[in-house]
């Protein structure tokens, strides 16, 4: 098979790294060659962050570029617009509806863009907007947005629920496991 590419984008602190670990573990367990590229350090402090996940028979570059992503999972609405150019023709963009104002918006230098969903649709992209924050809160913590979105992704990618469950157990600390399992199930149910 051709190498497939998934991007997780969001705001530093939203837990994209944990989500990529879960996804990476699932893909590895299915026998794929997998590469995951992360951002650490300064950009993590509330900046725009991206994690690339590529899998297939043999993966070379760990990085995804413009026009190449089969899936973009955005943890925040504005970030979905920012990373739109990375979506492949026919690719799928799934975004959390949560809005986190960046500093230039907070300081009044610019405004948060309106109608992001419809503007993206007008460009011809396949976009799905999900209120992952509410689902995470329903599961018990606003911090589980990342795992809700992995639940959504699990339904799209397929693979047995058991495999995802196992990856969740490997990546999430035991005391947070129950809440995260709930969050995952809620995400999966609407995927």
């Amino acid at each position: 098979m051709d190498t497939r590419s998934i991007m997780l984008v969001g705001v530093g602190g939203q837990g994209t790294l944990l989500a990529s670990r879960i996804l990476g573990n699932v893909l590895l367990s299915q026998g794929y060659d997998v590469k995951v590229s992360e951002v650490h350090g300064m950009s993590q402090r509330g900046g725009s962050v991206v994690t690339y996940i590529r899998f297939g028979e043999k993966v070379y570059s760990p990085v995804i570029e413009e026009g190449q992503a089969d899936f973009i999972i955005s943890f925040e609405l504005l970030e979905a617009a920012r990373w739109l150019p990375y979506l492949k023709k026919g690719g799928k963009l799934i975004t959390n509806s949560q809005q986190i104002e960046p500093m230039p918006v907070i300081t009044g230098e610019c405004t948060y863009p309106q109608d992001i969903e419809s503007r993206i649709k007008e460009e011809g992209a396949d976009i799905t907007v999900i209120d992952a924050l509410s689902l995470a809160e329903q599961a018990g913590t606003s911090k589980a947005v990342n795992v809700v979105l992995m639940g959504v992704m699990s339904d799209i990618l397929g693979f047995d629920e058991e495999i995802w469950s196992k990856a969740l157990e490997q990546c999430v600390p035991p005391k947070a496991l129950e809440v995260n399992k709930k969050a995952f199930a809620l995400g999966r149910s609407i995927g």
Partner: peptide
Amino acid sequence: DEFITYPEPLPVRPP
């Protein structure tokens, strides 16, 4: 590779 872009400039999100 071809790609689409968002039709207007977006606020940056610095750390």
